[in-house]
Amino acid sequence: GSLMYASIFGNVSAIIQRLYSGTARYHTQMLRVREFIRFHQIPNPLRQRLEEYFQHAWSYTNGIDMNAVLKGFPECLQADICLHLNRSLLQHCKPFRGATKGCLRALAMKFKTTHAPPGDTLVHAGDLLTALYFISRGSIEILRGDVVVAILGKNDIFGEPLNLYARPGKSNGDVRALTYCDLHKIHRDDLLEVLDMYPEFSDHFWSSLEITFNLRDTNMIPGSPGSTELEGGFSRQRKRKLSFRRRTDKDTEQPGEVSALGPGRAGAGPSSRGRPGGPWGESPSSGPSSPESSEDEGPGRSSSPLRLVPFSSPRPPGEPPGGEPLMEDCEKSSDTCNPLSGAFSGVSNIFSFWGDSRGRQYQELPRCPAPTPSLLNIPLSSPGRRPRGDVESRLDALQRQLNRLETRLSADMATVLQLLQRQMTLVPPAYSAVTTPGPGPTSTSPLLPVSPLPTLTLDSLSQVSQFMACEELPPGAPELPQEGPTRRLSLPGQLGALTSQPLHRHGSDPGS
């Protein structure tokens, strides 16, 4: 009898404990919600809404976190579960008819179910419309201010047509639940991603989709105040780019002037030289400038040598048109050559190039014969006009050509200096018209024969001689050997007369 009593008592207590286990969990969670309300000092109306929603959600799901349970299964099984949970929507909604099984599984994985109690606001006026909503159960109302403009029910759709707008718009009203509602919502990016994977279904979906109420604000059109608020930074940046392009296009129409201050000032006329910023005076940081632009901040801005204009002085008759350009485009679109090309026009420029290279940067340069637009006047290309890779490749080509020119210049200078040193070592320090008596009659020769300089066969020296023939050397430049009979510069000019005159010897006659 005691054994029977113990078994009955144990079973009854276990049954009672299981009955009250759900209630215990409910009270535990309710205590957490109330502690949250007390800690954050939530006001009474919002506090009442929180408690009511918790009670309804507990009775609806029995305190089970559906998302946590669903995430515990593998992905393939999750797709089947989501397809079952959203079967009513996918079967009865017209846009989803005719979709393949794979497309429906992908869509079912992207849908999220939302449960809303009465009085809950789903979308506020001015919120971004980031999702498309399908009503599965219940009814909602749409308000503009305090005026109800629409009441939607089961199988209705609200949001915005995503295929017509590249960016999400703003809501033009509040969406509030009238009863307990079940909503299926899919985010904008998720829907577009699935439709991109199934393009054959995309056309059918957009053609058959009928949005019951379009929440997009109709005033959000390009150029409206609301649109400016939504895309303020983007609009200002776009206007700045367009104004920069218009100014650079105007600059290219004036090829007669070359400016070292950047493309923003290349198009300024002579009357605007004294102004601080020219056409860019209202925004000094709008356009890029070269490193020399920092010198323009000092006094005497109108007389600054940074602004270059072609000189009108005539060229000498024998002067060549100019050196070879550094870039391939210089032959086609440049009416002034790079300062480095002028360094190779003569030997005198070679000796004085490194010492006063900055001073020569603004000297007169030889002109190319074609009066085409200036290379320095070409505006900086924006990322939309020329690819970045093209600019980098041009810079690399320019750097390689500069290296080759520097190597060639160093070799030419070394060769010229070597020839000058050899000339100085071969010439005796001094010569006299009267020579010392020699031991015999073989001493009648006034000077030792001097062998002429070897013929220069280097390509670089031939180019130097060509430049010497075309360029007029300055007075202080050293002379180079030329073709024809060679003669030492330090010898007297009348050596031929010395050989014809008898030598005057000093000596005593033994017979006297």
Rank of each mutant, 00 (worst) to 15 (best):
G298M: 13
L215V: 02
Q466C: 12
F353K: 13
S348V: 03
G511K: 05
T436Q: 09
V149S: 03
T130C: 08
P161C: 07
G287P: 06
E193Q: 07
V427L: 07
L242F: 10
P225T: 10
A433L: 11
V194I: 06
Q363C: 05
T442P: 15
F467N: 11
L340I: 14
D251S: 10
Q421D: 11
S341P: 07
P255N: 12
V258D: 10
R301D: 10
E364M: 14
V194K: 01
R360C: 08
T444D: 12
P437R: 11
P439H: 09
G145R: 09
V427P: 03
L209G: 02
T442F: 06
L419C: 06
G287T: 15
R246V: 11
M327A: 10
L375P: 12
L230N: 11
N172V: 11
S313N: 12
S432F: 10
R236Y: 09
P446S: 10
S243C: 10
E324D: 08
N214D: 04
F205C: 02
R360V: 09
P225K: 11
L409S: 06
D196G: 10
L128M: 10
K170Q: 09
S293L: 04
P279V: 12
L420D: 04
C470Q: 08
P299A: 08
L162H: 12
L129E: 01
C181W: 01
R307M: 10
S271H: 13
R388H: 13
A430I: 12
P478C: 10
E141A: 10
Q423S: 11
S451Y: 14
T252L: 10
L426E: 08
G322P: 06
S508D: 05
T218L: 10
P263A: 09
G232H: 10
N214W: 01
S286H: 10
W206I: 05
P452I: 07
L308A: 08
P316S: 09
L395D: 04
P428H: 15
K332V: 12
P222N: 09
G355S: 08
R388F: 12
K170P: 05
E295Q: 13
V149Y: 09
F134E: 01
G440L: 11
F353N: 13
S465I: 08
F311K: 12
T212P: 02
W206M: 05
R236S: 08
P428D: 13
L128A: 06
M327Q: 01
P383L: 12
L242P: 15
P383Q: 14
A131E: 12
R386E: 09
Y180S: 04
V434K: 08
P310E: 08
G264A: 09
K250W: 14
D182W: 15
E141V: 05
P161I: 03
I142D: 01
R216M: 04
L458Y: 14
T212V: 04
Q254C: 13
P325Q: 08
D249S: 11
L380W: 07
Q421T: 12
N163M: 08
L178V: 10
A131D: 12
I140W: 01
R245Q: 12
P369R: 08
S382T: 05
Y362G: 10
S348N: 04
P452G: 10
P161A: 08
L152E: 01
R240V: 11
L209I: 12
A414N: 09
G355M: 08
S171R: 01
E364A: 11
F234C: 08
V149L: 13
N155G: 08
D459L: 05
E210K: 09
P255K: 08
G359Y: 08
Q254S: 13
P320C: 11
G496R: 09
L495G: 09
S348R: 08
S432D: 09
R422H: 10
R273I: 03
L242I: 12
V347N: 05
E319C: 10
S445F: 10
E406G: 10
D296R: 12
F311A: 04
P291E: 14
P369V: 09
G496V: 10
R240N: 07
L398Q: 02
V149Q: 08
D356Q: 09
A433E: 15
F344Q: 11
P305S: 10
S341K: 07
K185H: 13
E471S: 11
T435C: 03
A411S: 06
S293V: 05
E331D: 12
L419M: 06
P446F: 08
M220F: 08
H187S: 10
R394Y: 05
P379V: 03
T218N: 07
Q423C: 09
N338H: 14
S465V: 08
Q361I: 08
M327E: 09
L129H: 03
S313G: 04
K332Y: 09
A430C: 09
D459E: 12
S382L: 15
P310W: 02
T252P: 10
P428W: 09
R360K: 03
R176L: 06
L456S: 09
P429S: 07
R137V: 08
T442G: 10
P316F: 11
S259M: 05
T425N: 10
C181Y: 01
S462A: 11
A150F: 01
R385A: 08
S348E: 10
L132H: 01
L192G: 04
L195R: 02
P291Y: 15
L453E: 11
L503I: 07
N214Y: 01
F353Q: 07
S302T: 05
S139T: 10
A477M: 15
L162G: 08
T415Y: 01
T457K: 13
F351Q: 13
N219Y: 13
P387S: 12
S410H: 10
K170M: 08
Y431C: 14
N349L: 02
P270G: 09
T228E: 10
L209F: 14
P279I: 14
C368Y: 10
D459G: 08
S508H: 11
Y198V: 02
G507H: 08
E297H: 04
A370W: 09
S289Q: 15
G476I: 13
D127R: 03
T407Y: 06
A268E: 11
G269R: 13
A150M: 04
S259E: 10
P291K: 11
L375F: 09
S348L: 04
G223S: 11
R505G: 10
R216K: 04
N338D: 13
P485T: 04
P475C: 06
Y133A: 02
E364S: 14
A150H: 01
E324F: 10
M327G: 09
G256K: 10
G267L: 10
S272Y: 09
P284G: 06
E295T: 15
G173F: 09
A268L: 08
L365P: 08
G322H: 04
M468D: 15
G153P: 02
L132Q: 01
S374V: 08
P339Y: 06
P339A: 13
S460P: 07
L380F: 08
T499R: 11
V391R: 09
D196H: 14
P452V: 11
P316I: 08
E331G: 09
A266D: 14
G233T: 11
G126T: 01
S460D: 11
R247C: 12
D249V: 10
E141N: 04
G267T: 10
K154Y: 04
L162N: 04
A430V: 12
P475F: 06
H204D: 11
V434C: 10
S451V: 09
P454M: 09
S341M: 11
P284L: 10
A414D: 12
I142V: 10
L480V: 10
L461C: 15
R386N: 12
R422P: 08
L230G: 09
P439Y: 11
L409N: 06
V416E: 04
G322E: 03
A397G: 12
D190W: 01
G267Q: 13
L398P: 02
P446N: 14
A150W: 01
S272L: 12
H187A: 11
A166H: 13
G169A: 03
A477D: 15
S333A: 10
I221K: 07
A266I: 08
Q501T: 04
Y180P: 07
H184R: 07
V434T: 09
H506T: 12
D174C: 09
Q494M: 04
S508T: 05
A430P: 08
S227F: 12
P437V: 13
C181T: 09
Y431S: 13
N214C: 09
G493P: 12
L498K: 09
D251G: 09
A433K: 07
H204Y: 09
P387Y: 14
G476Y: 04
S202P: 01
Y431M: 14
D190M: 01
P314E: 09
Q482P: 08
F467K: 11
S285D: 04
I221H: 09
G476F: 15
